[in-house]
Design a binder for these strands. Structure first.
Length: 373
DNA sequence: TCTGGGGTCCTAGGACCC
DNA sequence: TCTGGGGTCCTAGGACCC
């Protein structure tokens, strides 16, 4: 079946929101993240403008490195309330164009517009209309990919960034994709890229030119997935906004400004993280079965420790007691600590739990009945 | 060079059960 | 005495995404 899917992605979202309040910074290399002079050289770039990208700066880069690449860059923190507000407006605009809408993070979304257009010309026209409305309503530019699978639409939106539109049709997509490096396939990152390159796969064209069997033998499940995307065969649908989504984990972690050796301080931080997470868990009536701590020492040496309960729990003091027990293993190492984190997983909402117990009871009754017969 | 914070998914070994 | 095969759960680590 022919499908028309859009992937809409705001250009340098956090930086764009900061520029709304600071128009004087337009056309300057702007970095959203901690100022290395004030943060003891710690922290990373959240995002940056295209002027900063010209210097080789990108999100995730340590600010210490960014400041060497571009000593004159401007650093700004972002206001998360304003980010949230802009994101909400953006999503509202998109949803006017199709009810089959899937949000991805705060600044991008998929739209299935199969019901609204007849061909790719019309789909492209609609993409321009959306882009114009976003610009008009929130004064922010976005890039849009138009294609017939979600993954192709996503690759396309990256093609003419910033403020661009790209259409991959059934006829042109292989020619368009072939010269692109394989890292452009979502899911192929730094490590996979090196592995693929070692085996002679450099471009998406190198994947397309081989059979699925060949790629699968070389790269396993991940390779098979990449092959399906590159050949335009992925069939994943745009999730309806009503689709039930169950979050898998909730976590919080903090990197200290300086490495810490005082375990009293670390316990205090862990207690704080636990309280914050439980506040949110209580509001949403979510229980957990697994609790994990994460500890990172000076030198980036990182460990996770976890334990699971038999039944779902939500108990502040019990969680803290278990977290501290998990921490004990590390307490006597006398190594400076860089980060402490706390995570709850194996989540279940109370409603679901009741349903689960009901199903179990039905099954138990059936079994009893069967044994009886 | 120095590496945030919030997530998801995958792999792999071991325990345990049938 | 030596030890199958499948399934599920737990734990730890790692890649990747925004």
């Amino acid at each position: 079946m022919v499908r028309f899917i859009l992937h809409v992605d705001i250009d340098c979202f956090f930086a764009a929101v900061v520029l709304l309040d600071h128009p004087e910074l337009k056309n300057k290399p702007l970095i959203i993240g901690p100022n290395p002079k004030k943060s003891n050289n710690r922290g990373v770039v959240l995002t940056c403008t295209y002027e900063a990208r010209k210097f080789g700066i990108h999100s995730g880069m340590p600010v210490a490195k960014a400041s060497r690449l571009c000593p004159n860059a401007v650093y700004e923190r972002c206001d998360f309330d304003k980010i949230h507000e802009a994101s909400k407006k953006f999503m509202e605009i998109l949803q006017k164009y199709s009810s089959i809408f899937q949000k991805l993070g705060s600044d991008e979304a998929y739209l299935d517009i199969t019901e609204c257009v007849k061909n790719f010309q019309e789909a492209e026209k609609l993409a321009y209309k959306i882009k114009d409305e976003v610009k008009q309503m929130i004064n922010i530019t976005c890039s849009i990919g138009v294609s017939f699978t979600k993954m192709l639409a996503k690759i396309a939106s990256d093609f003419n960034k910033p403020d661009g539109i790209k259409v991959f049709t059934y006829e042109n997509f292989k020619d368009q994709l072939s010269p692109l490096p394989i890292k452009r396939i979502p899911g192929i990152g730094k490590k996979s890229k090196i592995y693929y390159n070692k085996k002679g796969i450099i471009t998406i064209g190198d994947i397309i030119s081989k059979s699925q069997e060949e790629i699968k033998n070389l790269f396993g499940k991940n390779g098979s997935w990449a092959w399906i995307i590159a050949n335009g065969l992925s069939s994943d649908t745009v999730h309806d906004k009503n689709t039930f989504y169950q979050q898998k984990s909730i976590s919080k972690e903090r990197t200290f400004h300086i490495d810490v050796e005082d375990y009293g301080f670390i316990i205090e931080k862990l207690t704080g993280l636990n309280e914050k997470i439980h506040k949110s868990l209580n509001q949403r009536k979510i229980n957990y079965k697994t609790i994990s701590i994460k500890i990172r020492f000076k030198g980036y040496e990182t460990y996770n420790r976890s334990k699971s309960f038999f039944t779902p729990k939500r108990n502040l003091n019990l969680a803290l007691k278990n977290a501290l027990e998990l921490l004990e293993e590390f307490a006597y190492m006398n190594k400076p600590v860089r980060l402490i984190g706390l995570k709850f997983s194996n989540l279940s909402s109370e409603k679901e739990q009741i349903k689960k117990i009901q199903i179990q009871n039905i099954q138990k009754n059936r079994r009893t009945l069967r044994d009886f017969i």
